[in-house]
Design a protein around this nucleic acid. Structure first.
Length: 548
DNA sequence: CGTGCCGGGGA
DNA sequence: TCCCCGGCACG
């Protein structure tokens, strides 16, 4: 297919680690500017094992150009990587993964993940995928990095960053669960037999979070559980069957439905106290400061980020995965929350803007505006540095209390780990919307859940949150959360999850928004001028014009 | 009782 | 998506 072409393309511009030119041992990152091949083996481009030597011209951070051999680049950073060729495998992977295909971020991650999880894969050597993963991590984490200032620090945080990164992308790839259902509809039965709970309704995706109850047992306690059918064929099957999207085509319309389905279905894994039609919605929110753009599809948001913020409009195919970090998956109980972006609400914009010492990131002109007070973020143009790091993931939403935040950040108030840093921005955005729900950092009533034991496997952020979000605390209080249903990352390190685990469950401020004291349209204009009201008022919604 | 607004429903 | 309204909580 187009594999080869993609490969070529993706190598240039790739970020790689290279041995420090100064010899101090610290690897540096650079961008591949050119590739030269020194061997005659070039002809056999396809073989991964063929010993051929490439020389990569790498543009280092300091702006200098340097040439490295594959080995150099490899040893520079991937020394713990079990793989052989440092670049080659990854490149191949990239292309295979459909890196440039469309909704990247989606398939690739899960593929890797799936591969990693599934033992005994005959086809692709695990090493390869692993190495890719490794490489990708490095790559992205380096590129995601903010100003150059904090180099060393970054190195330290690399792990967290990368971990979170992976989570991020995972969170946007619901497909990881879908294969079993879609591919093997007939097989479903066999999977759920291990008594892994019946909620799995084969025929309806949206009915329950069957995926999760399925995945857990099969992974942990039920070694005997038959592995998913598609394991036979390594990567591609994932996408094809689940998306029904044929070749690396347009992600477009299909995604939303998938996402939504997945998202919502997962949410209802546990017996939700009540109905509610379509209260949960998975959205993807751009985390660039002042850009609260919310799209319903991962692909969409990625495209948005790529074109608008990263300035990569021309070649929509090309992506190094950076977008993944600039958006977050969020769940909305109702779209209302994020919905009210700008509507003539001067007051909304006026709140004190926190100082933003950040110099605009290279190559992106950013007005010195600040993001926080922006609710819907419908906010204007402002392209800003991404919210410090979008690793907040869907979690972000729950960071209100910040109660637990400290935990993960190591308690450091000023903690500047990428993770903790990510929280604030996201928090702002959401907080603005649900301020009323978040009051003070109240801890969860429950004894063992909540912040106390976020790391406890059973506590899953995204889901439980979304669910408990509006339901009375009571429902949540207990351990209502079922063991395994983190919406976005079933099999993630609890650590990261911990971040999310600061559930919004403020015992207080449950009910409704405090009644606004300020004047509302009704008062201001009176009934007779109803047409002058803001639409919200007209519709008996929370007034948008005179917010408090 | 007036008001703000949530939740839900109709077109 | 736009619009309306029942109904609840608050003051």
């Amino acid at each position: 297919m187009h594999t080869r072409r993609l490969v070529k393309r993706s190598i240039l511009g790739s970020r790689v680690y290279a041995p420090s030119p100064t010899g101090d041992g610290a690897p540096v990152t650079g961008v591949v500017q050119a590739v030269k091949q020194e061997n005659s083996d070039v002809s056999s481009t396809t073989s991964t094992t063929a010993p051929r030597r490439n020389v990569y011209t790498v543009l280092l951070q300091d702006g200098s150009l340097k040439e490295f051999s594959e080995e150099e680049i490899a040893s520079g950073a991937n020394n713990q990587t079990p793989a052989r060729g440092p670049l080659k495998p990854s490149l191949k992977q990239n292309s295979n993964n459909g890196f440039g295909e469309g909704p990247k971020g989606e398939a690739p991650e899960e593929q890797r993940l799936a591969e990693g999880k599934r033992p005994g894969r005959p086809l692709d050597p695990d090493a390869r995928s692993v190495s890719l993963l490794e490489q990708k991590r490095k790559v992205v984490s380096s590129s995601i990095d903010v100003p150059h200032a904090r180099r060393s620090e970054e190195e330290v945080d690399m792990d967290k960053v990368t971990a979170a990164m992976v989570l991020t992308s995972l969170s946007t790839s619901p497909l990881v669960r879908s294969p079993p259902v879609k591919v093997g509809e007939a097989l479903v039965g066999s999977w759920k037999d291990p008594g892994s709970a019946g909620p799995l309704a084969p025929s309806s995706y949206s009915s329950s979070g069957g995926y999760w109850s399925w995945s857990a047992p099969s992974d942990q306690s039920n070694p005997s559980t038959p592995s998913p059918p598609l394991s036979a064929d390594s990567c591609k099957p994932f996408r094809v069957p689940s998306l029904g999207n044929g070749g690396g085509g347009a992600p477009g319309p299909e995604d939303p439905s998938l996402d939504d389905q997945d998202g919502s279905s997962l949410l209802f894994d546990e017996p939700i106290p009540r109905k509610r039609k379509n209260s949960m919605k998975v959205m993807f929110k751009c985390l660039w400061k002042n850009c609260g753009k919310v799209l319903s599809t991962a692909a969409g948001i990625q495209r948005h980020i790529r074109t608008v913020h990263l300035g990569r409009n021309c070649d929509s195919d090309w992506s190094d995965g950076e977008e993944d970090f600039y958006y977050t998956e969020i769940k909305l109980n109702t779209d209302e929350g994020l919905g009210c972006p700008s509507p003539a609400t001067p007051s909304v914009l006026s709140p004190p803007l926190p100082p933003h010492p950040h110099p605009p990131p290279l190559s992106h002109p950013h007005p010195p505006a600040a993001g926080p007070a922006q609710p819907g973020g419908g906010g204007g143009d402002a392209h800003r540095s991404p919210a410090q790091n979008s690793i907040g993931i869907s979690v972000a939403k729950d960071n209100h209390g910040g109660v637990c935040n400290g935990r993960l950040g190591g308690g450091g108030g000023g903690g500047a780990t990428p993770l903790s840093r990510s929280a604030p921005s996201a928090l702002y955005l959401i907080h603005a919307d649900h301020a009323y729900q978040a009051t003070a950092p109240v801890s969860i009533p429950s004894a063992d859940s909540g912040c106390g034991g976020p790391a406890v496997g059973s506590f899953t952020p995204t889901n439980s949150f979304s669910i408990s979000w509006q339901s009375p605390p009571v429902t949540f209080t207990g351990t209502s959360v079922s063991p395994c249903k983190s919406q976005s990352f079933g099999e993630q390190r609890p650590q990261t999850i911990a971040v999310l685990s600061s559930p919004p469950r403020a015992t207080a401020a449950i009910s409704r928004k405090v009644r606004g004291e300020g004047k509302k349209c009704r008062k201001v204009y009176g009934m007779e001028n109803r047409d002058m009201w803001c639409t919200a008022c007209r519709w008996k919604k929370a007034c948008q014009r005179f917010t408090d």
